[in-house]
């Protein structure tokens, strides 16, 4: 999977970049993702101040599809939050960072990949579920019919005369 390899390389490079820049300019916030690979298109991002004096009142979270943030996918204005839940993302690699009110980056860049599950497998499970459900429905209906016909209880729920 060449795409996967590229992504891995990018992540590794980014990791070292982030680590390197960490030593030079410590950002006021450390941004983390709840997962690196989101197979359902949703994930959580959280951040902690690295020093006690960080100002978290008006922060915006910038999410882009390129590590240089030239193609910004969305910006979220967050007031007094330390985490956010994103959802409904399409397949692709995403990069996120926090900006302060002057649009200066105040966190490391966190990256994650969205890769939805295989649609074929999903349909297979869907078909399995549909078949099992139809079976349940059919069996319930036929069992009920049979119980009414030859059960020892009649329609009013009274015991039939055993003789």
């Amino acid at each position: 999977m060449p795409l996967r390899a590229t992504w891995l390389l990018t992540s590794v490079a980014l990791f070292f970049l982030a680590e390197a820049s960490w030593g030079l300019t410590a950002y006021p916030f450390e941004l983390q993702t709840s997962t690196e690979l989101a197979t359902e298109g949703f994930l959580g991002l959280s951040w902690q101040p690295t020093s006690g004096a960080a100002d978290d009142r008006h922060i915006s979270l910038q999410v882009a599809t390129t590590p240089d943030f030239k193609s910004v996918f969305a910006s979220y204005n967050l007031v007094q939050q330390q985490q956010v839940s994103l959802s409904g993302l399409a397949d692709g690699d995403y990069f996120a960072r926090l900006l302060d009110h002057a649009q200066t980056p105040v966190s490391n860049i966190a990256s994650f990949r969205v890769q939805h599950r295989d649609l074929g497998a999903a349909w297979l499970l869907f078909a399995l579920g549909a078949a099992l459900f139809s079976l349940l429905l059919g069996i319930l209906v036929s069992l009920q019919k049979r119980a009414r016909q030859n059960g020892y209880l009649n329609n009013n729920g009274k015991l039939r005369d055993p003789n």
């Binding site: 409904g88 939805h116 999903a122 459900f133």
Partner: peptide, 21 residues
């Protein structure tokens, strides 16, 4: 959130009958 309107959202398709059961 483009996936949310997508009728071919794999995890959501898996979820449907599971929730019924």
């Amino acid at each position: 959130q483009p996936q949310l309107l997508n009728l071919l959202f794999p995890a959501a398709i898996m979820f449907l009958f599971n929730n019924i059961f």
